[in-house]
């Protein structure tokens, strides 16, 4: 039986000039993974979407009253940036999302740690979190408005409540999934409680945490839209809500585009950090 062979251009992994530049003929098995990662490949899907939108608008397939043309949205963005409204609203939105995300991450990770490392913690924490998980975030807003009014506290709190759940769930699952063999190892090398958490628990739970973080970031933007479209006087969501009352489709679409870009960017940032932090992992993701 002969293995399939391919000839490929010689690449030189070798420093030694005598060994470099030689032929590289090798049998290649069928690779089942997705292959090597390519830079900027993640832009492909969103770009295709943008292209489709442009084409549909340019050919008149898409009525501007239903969905504004991309160039109108860009022009609108230019105007809003020129009079400062876009930056102002974006800044306030980003601040809300950032604060909510920050508190949510801290609360979620801490609860996961306590609940994952102690039976008592689990008994008290896990149940209530599962209950919170079953209640849609939106359903809590009326109560939060009654308690905190409609100011920033209520908005940040709503985002926090949405964020901490996925962080908790995934971190907890990651932590509980740590191989018992490493726990034994920690004992035999004489790690204390703190050392055990620092050297075994946190790194072991990190993949779960990052998965939770990606859900959390997306969730933060979603909660943001909701709190900004009810009872708000600033932010991207408010800007869109105002545009709705004046029938300004272009501003609404601009708001959507801004949310989309923010979501894509923040997910990209999380993935980048994840890849750096989990460089020890050998996975399909590569």
């Amino acid at each position: 039986m002969s293995a399939p062979t391919v000839e490929r251009p010689a690449v030189a992994p070798h420093q030694d000039p005598a060994l470099a530049g030689r032929d590289d003929v090798r049998p290649t098995g069928r690779r089942l993974g997705p292959g090597r990662r390519r830079r900027l490949a993640w832009l492909l899907g969103p770009s295709a979407l943008l292209l489709l939108w442009t084409a549909a608008s340019a050919t008149g397939l898409l009525d501007p009253r239903i969905l504004s043309e991309p160039w109108t949205v860009v022009a609108t963005a230019g105007e809003l940036i020129a009079d400062g409204r876009l930056q102002e609203n974006l800044a306030i939105s980003a601040q809300r999302a950032g604060l909510g995300l920050f508190f949510g991450i801290v609360v979620g990770a801490l609860l996961a740690l306590v609940s994952g490392l102690s039976r008592a913690g689990e008994a008290f924490i896990d149940g209530p979190v599962q209950i919170k998980r079953a209640i849609p975030g939106l359903a809590l807003i009326p109560l939060l408005i009654l308690w905190f009014g409609i100011d920033e506290t209520m908005k940040v709190l709503t985002i926090t409540l949405g964020v901490f759940v996925p962080i908790y769930l995934q971190t907890h699952a990651g932590l509980r999934g740590i191989d018992l063999r490493y726990v034994e190892l920690a004992q035999t090398v004489g790690l204390g409680r703190a050392g055990f958490i620092r050297k075994v628990v946190l790194p072991g739970a990190l993949p779960g945490f990052f998965l939770g973080l990606r859900f959390a970031v997306t969730g933060a933007w979603v909660s943001l839209v909701v709190v900004e479209q009810i009872n708000s006087t600033s932010g991207i969501g408010y800007m869109m809500e105002l545009a709705r009352t004046y029938g300004q489709t272009n501003i609404i679409v601009l708001g959507l585009a801004v949310y989309g870009i923010l979501g894509l960017l923040s997910d990209g940032i999380v993935r980048l950090i994840e890849r750096k932090a989990l460089s020890w992992q050998r996975t399909l993701a590569g």
């Binding site: 063999r181 490493y182 190892l185 920690a186 035999t188 090398v189 004489g190 790690l191 050392g195 050297k199 075994v200 790194p203 072991g204 990190l206 989990l278 020890w280 992992q281």
Partner: peptide, 25 residues
């Protein structure tokens, strides 16, 4: 001072070789 060597090397995959050797020191 008791040390244990297991059948599997039981190195922490998220730590470097050096980090694994100094673990708990």
């Amino acid at each position: 001072r008791v040390s244990v060597v297991f059948q599997d090397s039981r190195l922490l995959p998220w730590d470097t070789v050096l980090g694994n050797v100094t673990l708990g020191l």
